[in-house]
Design a protein around this nucleic acid. Structure first.
Length: 596
DNA sequence: CGACGAACTTATATAAGTTCGTCGGTGCAATATT
């Protein structure tokens, strides 16, 4: 057995190298720069760790997260490798010791954050060492975070140039498009690096996209369909993580929220409980993930569309690390798109960026958002779409995503389209989608009761009208104006209105069946409007008292109220006797129930 | 864009309705005057 295989077995516990690992390690040992793009546990860190051990001098590992450094260093030390980190989590004393150990050459691998490279005081320490290699872990941060969020990432080359001798430079990441790969190579000044780009395909992941009527409910259903399994639910805001954790708990699902606004102790506790399986479901912002190595995550739900496909791929990719089947579900809403667009157009609050750069960055981000949008709207294979984004060829049919699995059905919506378009015309293009919906459905108080299209879609579900409107925007018959937001007609609407040009909508057979079931159930068992009102009512009281909603009355009681609809104080007492309501509030509740 | 909270208004003396403004995600780093 050669040295490398022995090391692999003795320190890392593997008998075989994964494809490509040896090639990269040999390249580094031969003094060549390296770029490794290796999705999921393909053993990125083993590459630079082993090379670091075998190289003559010290290897400096640039890592984005303190927790990542701690995990890796602990693992290395346990395997008997002399490694250390230097960061702000240490006391002054610990840091001094670490620096002393490093200066004395007692550390083969030193982990630090890129910010530290900018501290001139620290240069003295580093310049005394013989640095054989600088390894940049999670190198996509250069592109993803480097521009506005953590600019130190882009100043790594300045540090490299300050070194008396140019070390080997290696960069590793799990997620990088061709463009990001080039960006990494350029910004780190890699010299003709040996590249290894392994496949981005994760065959055990099932991808699904849904645009549900009621996201919360779909989420609950989905989680209930995965009893006892571990999963992550990504949200766009901190607040949403808290709300959903509460909602799931109210429904007897053990869940906890995780975001950067929580204090360090809570964060650690939540993370620990998730890893141990004590809390199987985590609702989180994108703060959760990097460095979380849990192999048996069975599902990742995106409650809201992320701002680009890299983020999506990375987050969804936390499912099924063990290679067993896992489900990646995206529940999106059009409002998500508007929000991202708005935020990107907003000026970044970073004075260090030049105007030129700001313009470039916005354009870049909008382009990436565009790709994300295409993913949620495509009727093609989702897997193929993702792989194509990372520059990888794939068949048009994977059979392992919601688009492939469902036989999509084409529905003719020409008549509805004509009704909608003519309504837009009748209101002189002064209304937004919601208002148009109200008018078409003949809701009271729209102020447009006299137009001829008022109430002509009374029998169509609101969400269906919105979907159809969306389709009309999609095919260019309608455009969304900004400030105020209104829908207006384009020339493309004419053939539809006057020449009966066909408009179709692809509805997926299975989803629409599911939606029908949902709709049927909600008609039989409840009244969506009433339950919305009750929820609202409950939320307001809860807010007034500063208590969580379920403490006023549970969802179970809420459901019973909708079904039985008590009319008298006595009946109400029977159903909601345990509710935390005051006399006045009970009266109001009764009033609401009677009104329905 | 849209949700939410604070401040203000409203028709009458307390609570509801309205308008306006703010905010939304990610993490390293750290230390000196009365």
């Amino acid at each position: 057995m050669d040295l490398k295989h022995r090391l692999l077995w003795e320190t890392f516990g593997y008998t075989e190298f994964r494809p490509g690992q040896l090639k990269l390690i040999d390249a580094m040992l031969a003094g060549r720069d390296v770029l490794g793009v290796m999705p999921t546990g393909a053993g990125k860190s083993i590459c630079y760790q082993m090379a670091g051990m075998l190289l003559r001098g010290v290897t400096l590992v640039i890592s984005p997260l303190i927790s990542l450094m701690q995990d890796q260093v602990t693992a290395l030390q346990r395997a008997g490798i002399s490694a250390c980190f230097i960061n702000s989590s240490q006391s002054a004393e610990e840091r001094r010791d670490a620096i002393a150990a490093a200066s004395a050459g007692r550390c083969k691998l030193i982990y630090i954050a890129p910010e530290r490279l900018e501290m001139l005081r620290f240069h003295d320490v580093l310049h005394k060492l013989k640095i054989s290699m600088v390894a940049v872990d999670e190198a996509h941060c250069i592109s993803q975070w480097g521009h506005d969020f953590r600019p130190s990432y882009r100043r790594i080359p300045q540090f490299l140039e300050s070194l008396p001798e140019r070390p080997v430079i290696s960069a590793f990441t799990a997620t990088a498009t061709a463009q990001v790969r080039e960006d990494i190579i350029q910004s780190l000044h890699l010299h003709q690096p040996e590249r290894l780009i392994t496949s981005f395909d994760r065959p055990n992941l099932y991808y699904e996209v849904r645009r549900p009527y009621d996201r919360e409910r779909q989420l609950l259903r989905f989680v209930q369909e995965h009893p006892g399994q571990c999963g992550i639910i990504y949200c766009l805001t901190r607040k949403k993580t808290e709300e959903l954790a509460q909602y799931l708990c109210d429904n007897q699902i053990s869940a906890a929220a995780y975001h950067a606004g929580l204090d360090a102790m809570t964060r650690r506790a939540v993370q620990r409980k998730f890893l141990s399986g004590e809390i199987p479901v985590i609702t989180a912002t994108n703060a959760f993930g990097m460095g979380i190595n849990k192999a048996d995550v069975r599902f990742v739900v995106h409650f809201g569309m992320p701002r680009n496909l890299e983020s999506y791929y990375q987050e969804a990719g936390r499912a099924g690390r063990d290679g067993e089947p896992a489900h990646c579900l995206m529940l999106f809403d059009e409002a998500d798109i508007g929000l991202h667009e708005y935020l990107i157009r907003q000026d970044p609050e970073n004075p260090a960026l030049t105007d030129e750069k700001v313009v470039w960055l916005k354009k870049q981000n909008l382009r990436r958002l565009e790709q994300m949008k295409r993913y949620v709207f495509t009727e093609q294979c989702l897997r193929q779409h993702i792989l194509a984004y990372f520059g990888q060829d794939a068949p048009d049919f994977c059979g392992q995503c919601s688009n492939c699995e469902s036989t999509s059905v084409e529905k003719d919506i020409t008549t509805d389209a004509q009704k909608i378009l003519s309504c837009v015309y009748r209101v002189k293009e002064q209304c937004d989608a919601e208002q148009l919906c109200d008018i078409l459905r003949g809701e009271p108080d729209t102020g447009y009761a006299s137009v001829s299209t008022f109430g002509i879609m009374r029998d169509t579900e609101r969400a269906e009208i919105l979907t159809e409107m969306h389709r009309l925007v999609g095919i260019g018959c309608l455009v969304r104006q900004e400030n105020p937001s209104r829908l207006s007609l384009t020339a493309a609407a004419k053939p539809v209105l006057f020449e009966n040009k066909r408009v179709t909508l692809r509805v997926r057979a299975d989803i629409s069946a599911q939606e029908q079931r949902l709709a049927r159930e909600s008609r039989a068992s409840d009244n969506p409007q009433l339950s919305r009102e009750l929820r609202e009512f409950r939320k307001n009281i809860a807010k007034l008292r500063g208590k969580p909603a379920f403490s006023i009355f549970s969802d179970k009681i809420l459901e019973k109220l909708v079904q039985k609809r008590p009319q008298t104080a006595e009946q109400l007492e029977h159903i909601a006797g345990t509710a935390d309501l005051r006399g006045r509030e009970k009266e109001k509740l009764l009033q609401m129930l009677r009104d329905h």
